[in-house]
Design a protein around this nucleic acid. Structure first.
Length: 434
RNA sequence: GGAGAGGUGGCCGAGUCGGCCGAAGGCAGCCGCCUGCUAAGCGGUUACCCGGGCCAAAACCUGGGUCCAGGGUUCGAAUCCCUGCCUCUCCGCCA
């Protein structure tokens, strides 16, 4: 959520900055309405506060009179009217405030000036590349073929017991999944300074609102059905949701910042509107595992924290010897809440492309304001909103895809990356089961 | 599932028969004094949010709101009533 003061001070600058991020006209319009309503609300607010001041004064006088043993019937009658009036005005104010808040929440974050221009992911800017894609003496196959040939990836039975876009992994492949998650968590907690958390995988509608998932992305969430409709729980689409909601409404002390959290959870996504896209295998499924990284920092350090977070994600791929590139997302591809962000894309020989395996974003104070996470500055002074960041470190499902494709051999076997040695109980190669 | 207790400032905690309570006291923080260092001690100070004034901004002044949340009673609610959420204790039950 943007700071409304930004709009009051220079709405044109905000409108210009947001022009490329969404529907420029709609944004312009929203800003106009917000300012109009804000002005009106403040007028009513002043009026109301004057009445309240009068009421407070009067009530005090009445109190004093009563203690003297006197009575003040006329005053009480008059204040009764004032009170009724105030009640009505308060209700109006509440309504106006809610509307303004609602509109404010529809405005996306301002892109940082360093973010490259552009409309879609096609305009993202490659910032670095690591590793050399392996030369195959045969045509490398896509992961679903490799997995199915191994007899370890079973999309058919998964579709039968659930529906399409679900998977069953057998034996050593299943173990590979677990090994990858374990490896990533160990890396981030032991070497990158993150604290591992175990969090709810279902959260309240309120939490979904506070983390920006609702109302916009209702279509892409799975929700549960409960007897009490008011308490519907949603399955998390990413651990970012519970992690970034963790300190909602809290006041942190600067000395404890930045907080670096990581959590391994399944993620559930409806993937509505993606029919026909990445239909094969486990690249885009309704359920997948992910190790998530979340940071809560001071706004001043947010960009440094973003850079180190990307580095943390890269390290996972480097240890697994998987070639990747990093692109900086352009304004159009930045997303609603981000002020700056990078995607890490892993090389997939089966597709002959680099594909996203991690997305790291800095939300800045926009995230802290929306989630109401503040900190008290070290030297004292007024509380400030924290900056929030998040990134994948990494999506386990897609890492499996990358391993299957990059480590496949002509004979249909798949080698296990060396870094996973300690986690695979001596298995160094996946060989077809019979 | 049954019975009871409770949710107060960064933290702990007091709030009597509704008014003099944004709230005693403590801890922690900050400023100053003192002290070879440290520890201790002494004095002062510190809630948050939103308007308005002033204004480049802060400070400051001023008004309002906030004692889990939402309603209600009342001239006036941290204090009374209702609902919800959460926590704790005891009993039962299940793992």
């Amino acid at each position: 959520m943007l700071d409304i003061n930004l709009l009051r001070e220079d709405s044109q600058a905000v409108a210009r900055a947001l022009a490329d991020k969404g529907d420029a006209k709609a944004v312009q319009e929203t800003i106009g309405i917000v300012l109009m309503m804000d002005g009106k609300r403040r007028q009513v607010l002043q009026h109301t506060e004057n009445l309240k001041a009068e009421r407070n004064r009067s009530s005090e006088e009445i109190g004093k009179a009563k203690r003297r043993g006197e009575d003040a019937p006329e005053q009480m009658t008059r204040m009764r009217e004032v009170s009724d009036h105030v009640k009505q005005l308060d209700a109006d104010l509440k309504e106006m405030g809610a509307q303004i808040l609602h509109l404010l929440q529809e405005l996306p974050n301002l892109p940082h000036p360093s973010v490259p221009a552009g409309k879609s992911d096609a305009d993202n800017v490659e910032v670095r590349r690591w590793g050399t894609p392996r030369e195959f003496p045969f045509a490398p196959r896509p992961h679903e073929e490799v997995g199915e040939a191994l007899g370890m990836l079973d999309m058919e039975r998964a579709a039968r017991i659930a529906k399409s876009r679900f998977a069953v992994m057998w034996g050593p492949l299943s173990r590979l999944s677990r090994a990858l998650a374990q490896f990533m968590l160990d890396l981030h907690t032991r070497e990158h300074g993150y604290t591992e958390l175990w969090v709810p995988q279902m959260v309240s509608a309120e939490t979904m609102l506070r983390t920006g998932q609702l109302p916009k992305f209702e279509d892409s969430l799975f929700k549960t059905v409960e007897a009490d409709e008011g308490r519907t729980l949603y399955l998390i689409p990413t651990a970012e949701v519970p992690l970034s909601a963790l300190h909602a409404g809290e006041m942190l002390t600067e000395a404890t910042l930045p907080r670096r959290y990581t959590a391994f959870t399944p993620c559930y996504r409806r993937e509505a509107g993606t029919y026909g896209k990445d239909m094969k295998g486990i690249f885009r499924n309704h359920q997948f595992d992910k190790v998530e990284l979340v940071k809560i920092a001071t706004p001043a350090t947010a960009f440094d924290e973003l850079e180190s977070m990307v580095q943390n994600a890269q390290t996972v791929l480097e240890r697994l010897a998987l070639p990747y590139r990093v692109v900086e997302r352009c304004i159009g591809d930045l997303g609603f809440s981000a002020e700056k962000g990078y995607d890490v894309e892993v090389w997939l020989p089966g597709q002959g492309k680099y594909r996203e395996i991690s997305s790291c974003s800095s939300y800045g104070a926009f995230g802290g304001r929306r989630g109401d996470i503040r900190y008290r500055p070290a030297g004292g002074g007024r509380p400030e909103f924290c900056a929030t960041l998040n990134g994948s470190g990494l999506a386990v499902g897609r890492t499996i895809v990358a391993v299957l494709e990059n480590y496949q051999e002509a004979d249909g076997t798949v080698r296990i990356p060396e870094a996973l040695g300690p986690y695979m109980a001596g298995i160094d190669r996946l060989t077809p089961r019979r």
